[in-house]
Design a protein around this nucleic acid. Sequence first.
DNA 1: AACTGTGAAACCTTTCACAGCT
DNA 2: AGCTGTGAAAGGTTTCACAGTT
Lengths: 231, 231
Amino acid sequence: MDPSRLATGALRAPGRRRANVPEATVARLPLYLRALHVLAEDGHQTVSSEALAEAAGVGSAKLRKDLSHLGSYGTRGVGYDVTNLVEQISAELGLEHRCSIVLVGVGNLGRALAGYGGFASRGLAIDALLDADQGRVGEVIAGLTVQHVEHLPQVVSTGSIGVIATPALAAQEVCDLLVAAGVTSILNFAPIVLTVPDGVDLRKVDLSVELQILSFHEHRKAALTAAGASA
Amino acid sequence: MDPSRLATGALRAPGRRRANVPEATVARLPLYLRALHVLAEDGHQTVSSEALAEAAGVGSAKLRKDLSHLGSYGTRGVGYDVTNLVEQISAELGLEHRCSIVLVGVGNLGRALAGYGGFASRGLAIDALLDADQGRVGEVIAGLTVQHVEHLPQVVSTGSIGVIATPALAAQEVCDLLVAAGVTSILNFAPIVLTVPDGVDLRKVDLSVELQILSFHEHRKAALTAAGASA
DNA sequence: AACTGTGAAACCTTTCACAGCT
DNA sequence: AGCTGTGAAAGGTTTCACAGTT
């Protein structure tokens, strides 16, 4: 959110050799990682920027530029070593030491997230489920027992990621609780603008926003074809 | 994806007065709309760019620039008329004529999406549920009966938006079916890269990608504090 | 010959600062 | 006086094209 802080001096650590990785690049690293896993399972040992870009759904120049921000891990004339690149990207994303994920709000969406297998595969899995509703406390979902939201401080450890899947009205309160418990990275599914202190990273996923964006494009296309028909 | 196409000649329609709205602006219009609805319910008749920006979680300069792309709907010295602005943005997003939404894949996530109230409130609601699993066909979720995916052509109408909530392996096939049925706007929740023909808009929501991005920031913060401690 | 890594150009987005309207 | 609308500057991202390496 405040990119200027990304560039502040603090990271002149002893043996660091790389500059800051641009935000747009970070957002694509998970895509490359996923594509690489598929390639590895297919038995590929190396991959060209062209092929990996294709698998990840981006242009090859973009891919090379992105990877160049992590360092020079390719071999000219050959391509990238799949296993090595998986390791480099995983390291960059901090996926070595599985950080814990706590999910607050076990409604429809929370349940779906808890049961979603996509996380587990790659170093990320939900470790705790919490809810404010006593009626849900004790229920077992995807192998985890739902705890009352008051136990938040006990289930949070350093480096935990918080996921908010509560109704909009409860979201800010839950967010404050997460921050108070020391969480500095939050993913919000509630359709509301949350406020967090400096130093806390907040991302949001808003389903109806996505649909409205598509609605815009659909609307525009309809207008275009109507205009085309009248021309 | 290909911004150049957005700027092609085709839209020189007779009475058009506005230029193209930038993609980044489109992505924020739904946020403004939501904030405006809240303000309207609170009884506000007008709102300043400062106040609306605050409510939407953006800067006021950005908000004004965004709204200026839609036209001049504010009054200097006063602000924006809430009701009017809601109408203008709704029109821009094409939320007048409720376009139908068909959701394919009624697993955990699909169920959650079907039951999610967030859509219904604002011109967008799911109209049909489909699944490839005969065991799920006939089930009633959120007032809708699940139909077999073969009925897709019958439930799709012009301007429909397709939502894919199937497992990754089925997603491309379902996507192809949607495209064949005439859908030109698709929202994909499956963790896989989909290929669509030109002219079809594709957006994706990937939960594990979001978590991995947060993991990166968490990791970076940890590295920073470690470096800070050693300094 | 094949392919990476990267300056430079083109493009898009955000921020600033203020002219101009009410 | 207060606030919008907008050129211009600053910053970030993507694309191009090719030098350099294996």
